[in-house]
């Protein structure tokens, strides 16, 4: 059993892109601002003409929690799992879960990148995993053992 997003006309493009392995955010065709989650109109210039813009999939951990006690039967076998808010390089944040990292090695500010996993037939979700290359560059820029790239 999986917990899958219901889709509406407003939100379906986000999930359809995820199924195709792409991360997108809504973008105003007039003023080119972007945001997430999707809205009926541009909140900046109020234009109704909106599109979807691919983003790099690069982001950083804004905050996270390691869930050790499941509150829903669908996640009973998943604990411990790491829920995070990830700030995309392009600005908007999204809720996701982190893969490929031990719970005690997650840090706020950690560079991560999007990966996509099928959770049900025809449904893929955007998760994030540590971005080793950018992490090394970040350590270098902070005066660590590795030179900045």
């Amino acid at each position: 059993m999986a917990v899958v997003p219901g889709m509406s006309e407003l939100t379906a493009p986000f999930w359809e892109a995820a199924r195709a392995g792409r991360l997108v955010v809504q973008e105003c065709q007039s003023c080119r601002q972007s945001w997430h989650p999707p809205l009926p109109r541009c909140p900046h210039c109020h234009a109704a003409g909106l599109g979807w813009r691919p983003v790099s999939g690069e982001g950083t951990v804004y905050t996270y929690t390691v869930v050790r006690h499941p509150t829903h039967h669908a996640f009973a076998d998943e604990v411990p799992y790491v829920v995070a808010l990830v700030a995309l390089a392009e600005g908007p944040r999204l809720v996701t879960a982190l893969l490929g990292v031990a719970p005690d090695e997650v840090r706020v500010g950690q560079p991560v990148r999007a990966v996509f996993r099928d959770v049900a037939a025809g449904v893929a979700l955007p998760y994030f995993e540590p971005d080793a290359g950018r992490a090394a560059a970040q350590r270098g820029s902070l005066g660590g053992l590795w030179p900045a790239r």
């Binding site: 059993m1 999986a2 917990v3 899958v4 997003p5 219901g6 889709m7 509406s8 407003l10 939100t11 989650p37 905050t63 996270y64 929690t65 869930v67 499941p70 509150t71 829903h72 669908a74 996640f75 998943e78 799992y81 829920v83 808010l85 999204l94 809720v95 996701t96 879960a97 959770v119 049900a120 449904v123 979700l125 998760y127």
Partner: peptide, 29 residues
Amino acid sequence: EGDIVVPEQDNLSFAWPFGLMSPGQLFAL
């Protein structure tokens, strides 16, 4: 039985599929 489809309501559809489902988890963030 089967998958749970989260309606697009209060942005739950962008949170529940990742296991962010209860107030305590949210406040931990």
